[in-house]
Write a protein that binds this DNA or RNA. Structure first.
Lengths: 336, 336
DNA sequence: TCAACGTGAGAAAACGTTTTCTCATCATTT
DNA sequence: AAATGATGAGAAAACGTTTTCTCACGTTGA
């Protein structure tokens, strides 16, 4: 009707094999009845001419596009990238491709992307963000396709996947204890962040009722400042610091070095996020809590697939465990 | 045939309006002949029932999927993310969506992704990577769809877009000169990187025949070490350092601070990449060369669109200009 | 009054698949 | 030798659009 392409279609194969398209289809899909030599001949011809079925035509027929949309407003990619690679990895095995939709924080742009995805008949949408306690600037409820929220706030009754912040905090404290630390403090981000609060609560529960938690910005500068405060008074200084993210940890480590305090000999430091570009390049390299975002992504991918294929999935918030990545900043790393 | 969906189709609209599907199609697309009241009535009914044409069906008809594939092996996203957002931004206006294919460095995975994209009839493929002088582990020549290489090595005769490294180096030197620096050195990455070499050449050309270029790793540690070398001998110390990336610059700035050398009062520093997470958080914040990757992405998006729609595009390597982002590490930032 | 023409709208084909149904042909059984 | 059954393969419909073609009807002009 419009532009004719030169791609080889099932009709070309049929013509080359001297049979009908139905026969070709059945031959290639191993369905229907037919002489096995016919089947083999068709298969070999199809391979010869390089036939690959047009996925669009199949999608139209099956009402399945084998495509999902990934909505994100994380521009740094710190959280989205591992998530994305997990999703992609899990889905590519099932022949499912991922539409990437970066929506910044623009509701209009988000709507454009969502509409485009729906028009293209995505089998589902994974919503993800840069912050667990904020939702994307678009309402995904009542869409004709399933939605999974990963690392972003979802509407009640939906499927929501996040990392278990409490678990992460517990892992950190456990480790600090294991290397013999007694005076442990927590330097973290603003208490307006739910994850900061959850980690802080778990931290207090693990360390004890009068555990010290210091809230500030998620920056190196705050790490510096916190050290100045901790070492500035006449109170006993800590021997273990659990930091709310790797940037804070980096600030803490640098500030301690400037003070001549040795890490990890005098003080053990544990970060959070395992953002390699920070964790790896800090001296000493950071022992840090990894939120397993790639695994989270993989789970999100498999979950949206379950939903797309009509399998039941339990709704609600599901928290996935963290893991500790041991480098040098906490000590005890050579004991193994 | 298989799963029936509940989405509203053009047939539903036709039924609701009491006309044929052809009439609906023509009404909504403002084509064909028909009483203008019929047209308006149909439009209003279509809007009421929330009809949106199935893009798959149109794609099949037009042989255009309004979809492009983005192939990348950059896992950190430093280069890919801005590129991606530029591509997406440029394309979403044209109703084109982007398949994200993260292929690590795995040829098999790359092939799987490319095949999946071709099956899904992408209108084109944008290849991008983490390094300008390395190609992706897959051969994209001879594909039935156009390919644009952005920030990665492409085959001869193809369309290749990169940032102009020489331009970036010139911008940096120019700026250092402008703030009065006379003894300018260049601390950069390994000379096995083409971009390092190109920048170094342009640097030499701008500064003079005996300009000092120091090659090392792309790391903070190398920045530190370079400062130690520069300030360690009995030679005259530089008053301006152009660094090959922001991490090196960060290392240089930190090392100078430890030495008591003031930045930018005593020495001006300029970085490369404008990786905000580094440039913004270094104290003082880094003046740095931005490769305009978002713009590069935008250009790549529009170029693949041109090719997909059959417009002629000049093949070959096209270098896009850089820009200087002025923060505090070079000085002269308050003069405006 | 009849031909020519313009207008509005629908039928059908097409895009590339898959699947159901039908139908020949040939072998087997009575 | 005739009826039954099994087997192989094709015709047609379907998915949701768009576009070309056709046709009926009403209006205009001679």
């Amino acid at each position: 009707m419009v532009a004719r392409s030169n791609r080889v279609t099932i009709h070309d194969v049929a013509k080359a094999a001297g049979v009908s398209v139905s026969t070709v289809s059945k031959a290639l899909n191993d369905t229907g009845r037919m002489a096995s030599e016919t089947r083999e001949k068709i298969k070999s011809i199809a391979a010869d001419v390089g036939f690959r079925p047009n996925a669009l035509a199949r999608s139209l027929l099956f009402n399945r596009s084998f495509t999902v949309g990934l909505l994100t407003n994380d521009t740094y990619g710190r959280f989205t990238l591992p998530l994305m690679s997990g999703i992609s990895e899990a889905l590519v095995d099932h022949g499912v491709s991922v539409f990437l939709c970066a929506i910044e924080d623009d509701p209009a742009l988000a709507k454009v992307h969502v509409d485009a995805m729906l028009d293209k008949q995505v089998d589902g949408i994974i919503a993800t963000g840069k912050r667990v306690d904020r939702s994307l600037p678009v309402d995904l409820a009542g869409l004709p396709v399933p939605v999974v929220y990963a690392f972003t706030e979802g509407v009640p009754g939906s499927v929501i996947l996040t990392a278990d912040d409490s678990d992460g905090a517990r892992l950190a404290v456990e480790r600090l204890r294991k290397v013999g630390r007694k005076r442990i403090v927590h330097v973290t981000g603003p208490d307006s962040f739910v994850s900061a609060v959850e980690r802080a609560d778990a931290f207090r529960q693990a360390v004890g009722p009068d555990a010290l938690v210091m809230h500030g910005a998620w920056t190196e500068a705050w790490g510096h400042e916190a050290v100045t405060m901790l070492w500035g008074g006449d109170k006993e200084t800590p021997d273990g610091i659990f930091c709310g993210n790797d940037q804070i940890a980096r600030g803490v480590v640098d500030a301690l070095r400037e003070k001549g305090v040795r890490v990890p000999e005098d003080v053990s430091i544990i970060g959070f996020d395992n953002w390699e570009i920070f964790a790896d390049q800090t001296r000493p390299a950071l022992t840090t809590v990894d939120m397993n975002l790639k695994e989270l992504g993989r789970t999100a991918g498999l979950t949206i697939l379950d939903l797309a294929e009509g399998r039941a999935v339990e709704a609600g918030l599901r928290k996935l465990p963290c893991k500790l990545v041991v480098r040098q900043s906490c000590g005890g790393d050579r004991e193994i």
